[in-house]
């Protein structure tokens, strides 16, 4: 399809969509009776409800059902796929890596984001300093992966290095290192990529809640002779505790679902795969539908309690 044709298709899609919406609204506009009210409500709500029902609810239920079947989806195998996830050595490695990601990314990102937010709070360059850290948030994980693959570029120690990381190692007189190849530390170097992206998010949210701490609280602490460090520990951190929890849980959820980094940097090789990527591999490469859906359901089960906790914390935050 040519460029022009693609744009025409795009405009057709948007135009058709708006035409349908307009017709629905106009058709129900004149109704003022009780049934009219109902028809209007249906016109407003049904498009969303139908899409969510067909596109989310039905597929999620089907996936849970399919995870009890074999590769092709024909033979019932009970919980065998789940057993595979927790016993097969390849899958256990995936679980180990996923655990490393889910523990490190939220904690380290939040810690760095918090420290940075405090350091630059009300400084002269605050806006600029924030933009620098925040910029990676606008970049796709594919783009971020390529940026970091270049940082990690490996060459023999005798050659001129083109990757910053190995250039630094060489400058310090050390051997160059295969950052993406050497298990198990390669997972750690991939984790750095997502931390690099997520710190901006943590900093933004935490910075906003630091600014919301009432001035008189800090003034009181100061009158009591609290040092900067004491203020940080006894005033700042407790005051922004709910935001801290929201940030940590939100980043955990993102981390559990992120598959782009592993796919772009190592393709899951060298023992770096994680659940979200393994799902993709099992379905699209190994054609094992049962195992793939079981992994997806496992992600679902892992995400669910974090989301529920996250939402409850957010409610508290809003209520204040």
């Amino acid at each position: 399809m040519s460029t022009g044709e693609k744009f025409i298709q795009m405009f057709i899609a948007i135009a058709v969509f708006f035409a349908v919406v307009a017709v629905i609204l106009l058709a129900t506009q004149r109704m003022r009776s009780r049934t009219g009210e109902l028809a209007q409500a249906a016109a407003f709500v049904l498009p969303a409800v139908l899409l969510i029902g067909v596109g989310l609810l039905y597929p999620a239920a089907t996936s849970i059902y399919q995870s009890l079947f074999d590769k092709t989806g024909d033979g019932f195998v009970g919980l065998d796929n789940y057993q595979t996830i927790f016993t097969d050595s390849e899958q256990l490695l995936v679980l180990r890596n996923t655990a490393a990601w889910v523990i490190l990314v939220p904690i380290v990102s939040t810690a760095i984001g918090l420290i940075y937010a405090v350091l630059i709070d009300r400084s002269r360059f605050e806006k600029f300093a924030k933009a620098l850290i925040f910029l990676p948030m606008a970049i796709s994980l594919v783009g971020a992966s390529i940026i970091w693959k270049f940082v990690y570029d490996y060459r023999d120690p005798t050659q001129d290095q083109i990757g910053v990381a190995n250039a630094v190692l060489k400058g310090l007189g050390l051997d160059t290192y295969k950052f993406l190849l050497n298990d198990p530390w390669n997972t750690f170097f991939l984790i750095i990529i997502l931390i690099w992206v997520q710190v901006g998010f943590a900093m933004t949210i935490l910075s906003a809640s630091i600014k919301a701490i009432p001035d008189d609280m800090i003034e009181a602490a100061k009158l009591d002779g609290a040092t900067g460090m004491q203020q940080f520990r006894h005033i700042t951190v407790p005051s922004i505790r709910p935001s801290l929890i929201v940030v940590v849980t939100t980043i955990s959820i993102t981390t559990l679902k992120a598959f782009d980094i592993v796919r772009t940097t190592t393709g899951g090789n060298f023992d770096t795969s994680v659940l979200a990527y393994q799902f993709y591999v099992e379905y699209f490469r190994s054609y094992n539908q049962g195992l793939a859906t079981a992994i997806a359901v496992l992600i679902f089960l892992l995400v669910m309690p974090i989301v529920i906790y996250n939402v409850r914390q957010m409610r508290k935050l809003e209520a204040r």
């Binding site: 940075y116 405090v118 350091l119 620098l132 850290i133 940026i147 910053v164 003034e219 100061k222």
Partner: peptide, 29 residues
């Protein structure tokens, strides 16, 4: 008011730490 609190935290080391983080975050891109 809290500027004073901030100042208390702002040692030269704190500024250096902030600059280091900012530089580390920018260099890859």
């Amino acid at each position: 008011v809290s500027t004073s609190a901030h100042r208390a935290l702002t040692s030269p080391w704190a500024s250096i730490a902030a600059v280091v983080i900012a530089v580390l975050w920018t260099i890859p891109t």
